[in-house]
Structures are given as structure tokens and as C-alpha cells.
Design a protein around this nucleic acid. Structure first.
Length: 550
RNA sequence: GGCCCGUUGGUGAAGUGGCUUAACACAUAGCCCUCUCAAGGCUACAUUCAAGGGUCCGAAUCCCUUACGGGUCACCA
């Protein structure tokens, strides 16, 4: 009996060889230096910030080099799979403009290197496993969960490195006859890789981000195929898929670094060249004094839906991530304001070495800048698109009178130094509600009076203003009139004079303007008062002023 | 516990033996501008690069030790 008999006993129906697959998925015909990268999430129902972070790197390096970026659905863990997860991933990538060149979705396959869904690649994996068995580099293992647990406990008490290696790899010593016999008897088994490595030997692993690393060789006989559904484990699928899909660069989280020696050994067992690796830092979260990996369960901001709900422009999220990826991105972007983030030359070795804290304040800042540079048309469309999904009330507001909405958001916009008070679309409503009479009169609100609080004086200012000084012809006239009123009522119309001699006045032009502002909007902080007044018009202004009771 | 990685201000970080009396950006504080706010302008914010030792004319940068933080050790990815 030979290994071939064993292989045939396990995979009697697999006839294709790995050479067949080599021919079926030939080397990609791409220019020199073109990078083939992939985003390979498992469909667990979340789109994690860390996932987008990696997808972004994948996208940037592939696009920049004229290569290919593809999406592979790693659905080998059927227990954790969630319906609609792939849809969420596709939607997220699309909405962030990171659409893959190749993918499989909704029964549609784009690209020549598929299937791009691992559960549909079972036969391929089986052919590769069969080959490994034939050459003696894989074997069935019949150890039960209980036996394995016991083994680990023993190893721990003996203070020996845990795992299925060396003399602990019992099933590796089973004869072919015994193994075939057990299989015929219907015993459950997994397939393990037969490692030839020596843990005491170091080898050089060249990570594009961390540089040369001296890692111990792998000596663990890793499980490469699970018993239940004969699907491969990550470690094996990674090797087969990234080879067959001709991936040149694997971008993955740092948590994979410890298992890299396994992958390297498997690539060698097949005689394949391993791809280049970029192990990215994890995105961290501060909790009290300690740091931890950002977690989708504990941290709402770990999930991309958080940014959706709040309504940050997608490009703001992208840019905030770019600044973490390469901190010189910001500088570059300032110098090249018209270039796209895909034009940026990413360098893996410049990526931060430790886990980065994702800074929401930074996102706010980036986002404010981006929104401030939008035209009113753009902001209107973007905010409406957001409101359609996330805010009934804002949607109603916009649709009621689009032109009016545009003129509100256009206050101090489309100019050299535009107003920067909107960080996200969900901010908008709370910034503009007072521009709508129906909301203004129905809302519970506090008038935020400042220096002038005496109701009689307030009334006096408002009445005088309405009687003699209301003038919306242009900004200069408008303000001159307010100054004239100040003079009449004993307020300083000139701030410098006021500061010189405060006692001589009841207050100053700022106090008077504030009275007008608060009476009109109930808020003490608003954008340009003249523009607000102009939009509302004399009638509405008077109406609101008259509502103020002495 | 074994193995691996890391440690520069509140945050992201630049920095790879002399140009560093440690860039830039965010945050924070103050001032200026100003009808309020947002913005903008200016200023402040690490005498020091986790600690200690060493190499060197010279160290954040190289070496060693210690401390601390993170990752990983599943029929999860």
C-alpha cells in the first residue's frame, strides 16, 4: 500500500491534478510590478473598521501599480456565517469606492480566477490535499476533541509547547493500512499537514512592513481539512487560493504573523512561491489606561455602520484611515489637493509599527474640511442621499423646498474661507431647524439671551429696530443701520471706543446684535445674521420679534 | 508560560549616527480678528525619545538588560 492508495481512499472522485489547475489559472498577464491584492473577509455580518483599513491598502497598492484587486469570500466556517454578510461587504466596498475588479456576488462572477467563494472551491482544495497525501505531506488524523484537550493539558503541566507536533503527532505514525482501515470503519477524521520543520531553527521572514523577521520554523501538523464538511481551514485555503489566484501581495492583520511559518512551509511543500506579506497593525482602542484591539462587540465605532449612521462623507473616513496608514499622507494631500488618494505612493515600511488608536476627533476635522469645500449642490445631494436612509426628518426638510434648503446650507459657503461647522450629515438638522417656521414655532426652546436680559430693554431694541432700522438691501446698509440704532439707544457702535470707555455705554453693538439674533433664532450662536435675515425676509423677522413678550 | 512584535507630548506621528535647541496634523489653552459662533492668524504645549547600562568625538537612532504594552498558541478566520 502506498500514499496513493490512501489518497484514493479519501478522495476517490478527485481526478484533476494540481497541474491541471496550474494550467487553468495561469500566471496573470500584467505589466512588471503590477500588484495583485485581495480583500478576504469572512462573512460574519460585520464590516469592521480594520477590514476597511486593509481593503483600502489592498485597493491603493493594486490601483497604483496597475494591478488587480479582488474580493474573496472566506466562508469555510459555516457555523459563523450570517445571511446577507457578503452583501454588506460588497455594499460597503462600493459605497467607499473600493469596488473590487474581480468578485463573485449574486450568482455573478467577474474575473477568470474564480470561484471567489471558498465553499465553491471544495474540489480544488481536495485535489491539492490529495496531492499532499500522495507525496506524504498530509495524513488523516483520527484524534478526538477530548484526546486533543487531554494532550494539551499534559503539555501544559509538563511545560512543553502545546500543539500537534513531534512525538505528540500520534496519527502521523499510523500506517497507511491502519489509516485506510479506520476510514473504512467510518471513523471521523481531519486531514493534517505533515510538517518537516524544526522549531529550533530560525528562518528569515521578510515582511514588507516590519522588515526582516527571524521566526522559528513551523513544526505543527496543522489541520488543513475539517472533518464535518471537508472544507479547508484558513491556513490551507490561503495557500491554495492565493497561489491559484496569483496574488502577489497579501495584506492581513498582524494577528496572522504567528501562523506565517505554517503558510510558508505549505507553499514550500507545493513548490510554490509565497506571496509578499504586509502584516498591518491592529487598530486599537483605549480603555482606561490600557490598550486593546478595537472590538466590534464593545465599540460601536469599530463597525462601518457607525459612520454610515452618523453620516460622515465616505471620503473623510478614507482619508482619516489614510493618515493612519501612512502619516505623510496628509502632507502629500495638502501639496496635491487635486489628486486622488489612489495617486498616493503608499510605502509599507512607513506604516506605523505599533497598533494605532483611531482618532474620532481627527475624523471630525477632516470631515469638516471636506464638507466645507462642497458646493451647495453637492452638499444637498449628499445629505439627501444620507437622509433617505437615515433621517426621515431631514429628508422631509430638504424635499419640502430644495432651493430654500440649498440657500440655507449655502450661508458662508462657496467662498475662500468657507464655514466649517458641519462634520457629518447628522449635524445638519440641529444647525438649521430655526430657519423653518413650522419647526421654530413648535419646538420647545430656550432663548439664549446673553448680556442683555431685561425683557423691557429687549423689547425696546426689537421695536426700535422694526420701526426705523430694518434694512436688508445689502450687508453694509444692514450693519450701518444697526450701528445707528446703537447710537440712538446708548450702545457703543464702535467696539474700540467701547473698550476704551465701557462706562459711557449701556453695552455695545455685539450686545444689540445678539438680541436680534436670539430673538430671531433663539440661539446665541448662528452663522451670519444678515444672511439669515435675508433668507427669512422682513415679514417673518417681524413675526418672530413680535412673539417676544416684554 | 512559549514564540513574535512593539514602546518618541493627550492623539496620529516625522525621524534610520552629527542639519533635532525632536517636523507636521488633530486635540487643548491663551491672544488677535470679529455682530455671536464656526473658521482664520499668532502663540503655548516632549530640555527629551519606557528605564538603566554600554559602543562612539557624537545616539531617539547601534548593542545589552529590565519594565511595560500588544499579538498568538482552536476542526475561527
Amino acid at each position: 500500500m502506498t500514499n496513493k492508495d490512501l489518497a484514493n481512499a479519501i478522495f476517490p472522485n478527485i481526478t484533476k491534478t494540481i497541474e491541471d489547475y496550474e494550467k487553468e489559472y495561469p500566471k496573470r498577464n500584467l505589466p512588471d510590478g503590477a500588484i495583485v491584492s485581495r480583500f478576504a473577509p469572512s462573512p460574519t455580518g460585520f464590516m469592521h473598521l480594520g477590514g476597511l483599513f486593509q481593503a483600502l491598502i489592498d485597493y491603493v497598492i493594486a490601483k497604483r501599480s496597475g494591478g488587480v484587486f479582488y474580493l474573496r469570500n472566506e466562508d469555510t466556517d459555516k457555523a459563523r456565517e450570517i445571511d446577507g454578510a457578503l452583501e454588506l461587504i460588497m455594499d460597503t466596498l462600493n459605497s467607499y469606492n473600493l469596488t473590487p475588479d474581480e468578485y463573485e456576488y449574486n450568482g455573478k462572477m467577474i474575473g477568470n480566477y474564480g470561484p471567489y467563494i471558498q465553499s465553491e472551491r471544495k474540489e480544488i482544495y481536495h485535489a491539492f490535499i490529495k496531492h499532499l497525501i500522495e507525496i506524504g505531506r498530509a495524513y488523516p488524523c483520527f484524534c478526538t476533541k477530548e484526546e486533543l484537550d487531554l494532550m494539551r493539558e499534559n503539555q501544559e503541566t509538563m511545560k512543553i509547547r502545546t500543539g500537534y507536533h513531534g512525538r505528540f503527532a500520534r496519527c502521523s505514525r499510523l500506517s497507511i493500512e491502519e489509516a485506510i482501515e479506520k476510514i473504512k470503519n467510518g471513523e471521523k477524521y481531519v486531514i493534517r499537514f505533515r510538517s518537516n520543520g524544526n522549531f529550533d531553527n530560525k528562518f528569515v521572514f521578510d515582511d514588507l512592513r516590519q522588515g526582516k523577521l527571524y521566526l522559528n520554523e513551523n513544526d505543527i501538523d496543522e489541520i488543513i481539512m475539517k472533518s464535518e464538511n471537508m472544507l479547508p481551514t484558513y491556513h490551507f485555503a490561503h495557500v491554495v487560493d492565493d497561489h491559484l489566484m496569483r496574488t502577489t501581495h497579501v495584506v492581513r492583520g498582524e494577528e496572522w504573523l504567528p501562523s506565517a511559518p505554517k503558510h510558508i512551509e505549505m507553499f514550500e511543500a507545493f513548490g510554490f512561491e509565497a506571496p509578499k506579506y504586509i502584516h498591518t497593525p491592529l487598530i486599537m482602542k483605549k480603555e482606561g489606561d490600557s490598550l486593546r484591539k478595537i472590538s466590534k462587540r464593545k465599540d460601536p465605532e469599530a463597525s462601518m455602520s457607525y459612520y454610515d449612521k452618523l453620516g460622515y462623507p465616505k471620503i473623510a473616513v478614507i482619508e482619516s484611515l489614510m493618515t493612519i496608514i501612512n502619516s505623510n499622507y496628509e502632507e502629500w494631500h495638502q501639496e496635491n489637493p487635486d489628486k486622488k488618494f489612489t495617486d498616493f505612493t503608499f510605502s509599507a515600511d512607513k506604516m506605523s509599527t505599533s497598533g494605532a488608536l483611531y482618532d474620532l476627533m481627527k475624523l471630525e476635522d477632516i470631515s469638516k474640511n471636506i464638507i466645507s469645500k462642497m458646493t451647495k449642490e453637492q452638499l444637498c445631494e449628499e445629505s439627501l442621499a444620507w437622509a433617505n436612509k437615515h433621517s426621515e426628518s431631514l429628508k422631509d426638510l430638504i424635499l419640502k423646498d430644495k432651493e430654500y434648503y440649498k440657500s440655507i446650507i449655502n450661508i458662508e459657503r462657496e467662498k475662500e474661507n468657507p464655514r466649517k461647522d458641519i462634520a457629518k450629515y447628522s449635524d445638519i438638522e440641529s444647525l438649521i431647524w430655526y430657519m423653518y417656521d413650522d419647526i421654530f414655532y413648535n419646538k420647545e426652546k430656550d432663548y439664549e439671551w446673553k448680556n442683555v436680559t431685561d425683557k423691557k430693554e429687549i423689547k425696546n431694541i426689537l421695536d426700535t429696530y422694526m420701526e426705523k432700522y430694518i434694512d436688508l438691501t445689502d450687508k453694509d446698509n444692514w450693519f450701518n443701520n444697526i450701528k445707528l440704532m446703537c447710537d440712538e439707544l446708548g450702545y457703543a457702535s464702535n467696539m474700540k471706543e467701547y473698550k476704551k470707555n465701557k462706562e459711557a455705554f449701556k453695552g455695545n453693538v455685539a450686545d444689540v446684535s445678539t438680541v436680534l439674533r436670539v430673538a430671531l433664532t433663539s440661539k446665541s450662536n448662528t452663522p451670519d445674521l444678515f444672511e439669515i435675515m435675508s433668507l427669512l425676509g422682513v415679514d417673518k423677522i417681524k413675526q418672530r420679534f413680535n412673539k417676544i413678550e416684554a
